[in-house]
Design a protein around this nucleic acid. Structure first.
Lengths: 157, 157
DNA sequence: TTAAGTGCAAAAGCTTTGCGGGTAG
DNA sequence: CTACCCGCAAAGCTTTTGCACTTAA
């Protein structure tokens, strides 16, 4: 199931993207815009390839390379983020505001959770090691519903 | 710099591994034991290939495949964990107790931090979605020292 | 003895790079 | 105009798989 971002937030994010392009001398190409739109339309923490699939449907002939490059660039300027995950495939996240994740250590799936208790943690001072904190996430790690079912079947088998 | 795990902890972990093997009918092979020892000796959140390099030096002729399979298995039984990261390469972590990470969104580096304030968060009930929480991590995300230097140079260039 | 594990080779999957042609600003 | 960006093809990494041989228990 994919939930739409509310239209205002979506428009604001696209506007932010245009502004950042202007400020940094980047070009607001159709490809980049559609890649951003697609990420905003997915709440699944998609891989680059999953984004490519959807972008292809909306933009005939777009290349996989461009999607990879666009995602990297969009994350770099901060209109989307990379999600932290335990696996071997980069995943992107349309949410840039604070929120948290359920992380399955078996299938690497990521599910958003809201938990007010996690939203106002005091960030320690990391200037001593020269690290500049941009945001944070609490990640609850474990086994998701589907993988638990799987494990039960294997035990019986 | 690599810091040694204190010897007692190291021995306990190896013993746990032997016990888990017995309990689950797995075999305690030299390869698996050395892979575990190597991860315990590294505090760098290594990739499978980094582990392979070190294992190779200690165990002539070991195959990359076996290292990959061993790491997966060790993580499955819980004597090591997978680290959550923003990149495209699985990383392993010798620490299984609660601790937290500085995550660089540019180079994917992971640095351990201890922060007492993060250690006793109240875990929300996720049984409604069938998710079984095993542990959690707070991840402070941003830009590490080296990458900030890099960015400064690029701006000047 | 024998099921589980290993090594090898090959395939599969994900991501980056170099380059010539295209285009937003 | 022209610096930036795109698509293509190819290379480069990382990880998985199938199979025959080996070995821990």
């Amino acid at each position: 199931m994919t939930y739409a971002l509310d239209e205002t937030t979506r428009q604001q994010r696209l506007e932010t993207f245009r502004r950042l392009c202007r400020e940094r001398g980047l070009r607001c190409t159709v490809q980049r815009r559609v890649v951003l739109e697609v990420v905003l339309d997915l709440d699944t923490h998609p891989t680059a390839d999953e984004v490519f699939e959807v972008v292809s449907r909306r933009l005939e002939g777009v290349s996989r390379t461009t999607v990879y490059r666009s995602l990297e660039g969009l994350a770099r300027v901060g209109v989307i983020t990379k999600a932290c995950h335990p696996g071997a495939t980069t995943r992107y996240d349309r949410r840039i505001e604070i929120h948290h994740h359920l992380i399955c250590l078996r299938c690497d799936s990521i599910t958003d959770i809201s938990e007010a208790g996690f939203d106002d943690l005091a960030i320690p001072d990391t200037s001593a090691v020269g690290f500049e904190v941009k945001d944070y996430r609490v990640q609850l790690r474990g086994i998701c519903h589907d993988c638990r079912d799987q494990e039960k079947k294997e035990e019986l088998g």
